[in-house]
Design a protein around this nucleic acid. Structure first.
Length: 292
DNA sequence: ACTATTTCCTGGATGC
DNA sequence: TGCATCCAGGAAATAG
């Protein structure tokens, strides 16, 4: 289940492998769920572009693209003015491909000879001869394009927000603090694992109403979120279920989990058994003694 | 404007 | 072994 640290790790790995390569052609599968726009539109935006950068925004992977204009010349500003009626044929020179991995999404860079995995929804043929494939068994992942290159995810980056703005996010919210942490319109990138781990380190019960958490505790949470995400990125993310990075390597932050997936196990601080409850349909883990 | 609930999806685990 | 059932959960859609 890729959250911010996993997506960051994947984006960094992909950046090393495909930056500068050119997308020559695109095949998209028949399943419509993973596509946020019609397949023809997505293909048209991606084809004949150079991958300028690969980066993460929240849980999204953003490919910044530049059109390469093979086999045609971009009209000069002068001729553009003189042929206004052809304006619609002029292609934007910047675009973006936005990938959300959902629960089980993978991006693989491989040779064309490699067997096409079940649940492959997109294949981008690259000028280097390799292919960039999107595989997602559960189809919770999403592919979209921003033809003008102005994609902006909702919410604030948790590793960039300052303390005051962080505290303001929770003001007056009756929802459980855990739900607020998971709300991508507030903070972007925190998912179930890192919400639980951050709340444990801050000593806050996941069900506590966001508005009832003191400023002081929110300050602690602010630091915990940063700490947990930073440590997780350094360890390449958490490999639960089948997560691997762009090079097929596992992360190691799952070894640092203090509450997630540890139901009934002793709290590492006080030995009280870790509790598991369900909040908004998600399993939530906490220590009933250390978290208030 | 908020908040809570439901829905989408498949593979792996579990139970009988 | 087979078959049914449950569960994982991000985010959009829906309801209140």
């Amino acid at each position: 289940m890729p959250e911010l640290p996993e997506v960051e790790t994947i984006a960094r790995g992909l950046s090393k492998r495909v930056t500068g390569d050119v997308i020559e052609s695109v095949w998209l599968g028949q399943k419509k769920e993973p596509l946020k726009s019609p397949a023809s539109e997505i293909a048209a935006v991606l084809e004949q572009t150079r991958i300028a950068t690969v980066r993460r925004m929240g849980k999204h992977i953003v490919f910044d693209l530049e059109h390469v204009n093979v086999g045609r010349t971009v009209p000069s500003a002068k001729s553009r003015r003189s042929k206004r009626n052809q304006r619609s044929t002029i292609t934007q020179d910047k675009a973006q491909w936005i990938v959300h991995l959902g629960m089980t999404g993978h991006l693989q860079v491989c040779e064309p000879a490699i067997e096409i995995a079940k649940h492959t929804h997109a294949i981008l043929k690259l000028a280097s001869g390799r292919e960039l494939r999107f595989v997602d068994s559960r189809r919770f992942g999403r592919l979209s394009v921003a033809s003008s290159g102005d994609f902006d995810a909702t919410g604030i980056e948790p590793l960039e927000v300052d303390l005051d703005r962080f505290i303001a996010l929770f003001r007056g919210r009756k929802t459980p603090i855990k739900s607020a942490l998971l709300n991508q319109k507030l903070l972007r990138g925190v998912g179930n694992i890192y919400a639980d781990e951050s709340l444990f380190r801050a000593g806050i019960r996941p069900r506590r109403r966001a508005s009832s958490v003191t400023r002081e505790r929110l300050g602690k949470l602010f630091l915990s979120v940063r700490e947990v995400l930073t440590e997780a990125i350094a360890l390449g993310g958490s490999s639960v279920s089948d997560y691997v990075n762009a090079d097929g390597e596992e992360g190691f932050f799952q070894l640092q989990h203090r509450v997630y997936g540890r139901e009934s196990d002793p709290c590492l601080v006080c030995k009280t058994p870790i509790k598991r409850i369900v909040i908004a349909g998600r399993s939530s883990h906490y220590c009933p003694k250390c978290q208030k």
